[in-house]
Amino acid sequence: MNNRAIVELDGICVNYGEVTALENVSLSVFEHDFLGVIGPNGGGKSTLLKVILGLIKPHHGSVFVFGKPPARARSRIGYVSQRSVFDRDFPASVWDVALMGRYDRAGIMRWYRGEDRAEAEKALARVGMLEHRGKQIGRLSGGQQQRVFVARALVSEPELLLLDEPTASIDSTMQSEFYELLEQLKDSLTIVMVSHDIGAVSVHVDKIACLNRELYYHGSRELTPEILEATYQCPVQLIAHGAVPHRVLKEH
């Protein structure tokens, strides 16, 4: 059954003071969807993820995640934030960071148990970072760090994975490796990925949503120039390779 709605947003409005971040956004994400959310910077992409996580309460509209208010569904959500702002010298190893994902399962004021360590080991192996478990997190490359953060999201055994610009801080070879990793994960998870990299998104995801305050499009990954132009509010050129758009450039 692929039609169970995991995330249901209905008429969401979010304002930051005078600025409107999201306006009347309605969106459903179904089980085993791999949804890419694209749109310009400041278009409300990160805000959308934070609404799903329950970190931001919308001023209007309703949010249900697994049929519950988002704060009560949190233990079933894995989240990888845009860039973890942390000190490169922070005293934590890859292993420490992966275990952080077990916080919710272990419970407040309790130490990690054997099963928590077993899950951390599994998750690090899954993203190919187990051999680096003893290394300081700040000493890894951006791509390796991102893998560890994905592992941290996976150790809580989530059913929904939210990724906010996961490839923003890593180079292009690392990016294709990262998308391969997501390909492997998408069979067992529902994934919502926010990105400004239209080319990569349209190649790897199954469904696309175009967001610029309002939701301009939501459907299969075949995008037309008209949709992109409406979303970005400026001409965007598509260079098609076969059936899927591969590279998107701004028109000069």
């Binding site: 934030s81 702002v85 934590a92 952080m100 407040i108």
Partner: peptide
């Protein structure tokens, strides 16, 4: 001793701490 793991997460990445529902 009781809150070691909480403070490790909180000092590493406050946004993540909020996202996983820590107080």
């Amino acid at each position: 001793v009781a809150l070691y793991k909480e403070y490790l997460i909180l000092s590493f990445d406050e946004e993540y701490a909020m996202a996983v529902g820590m107080p």
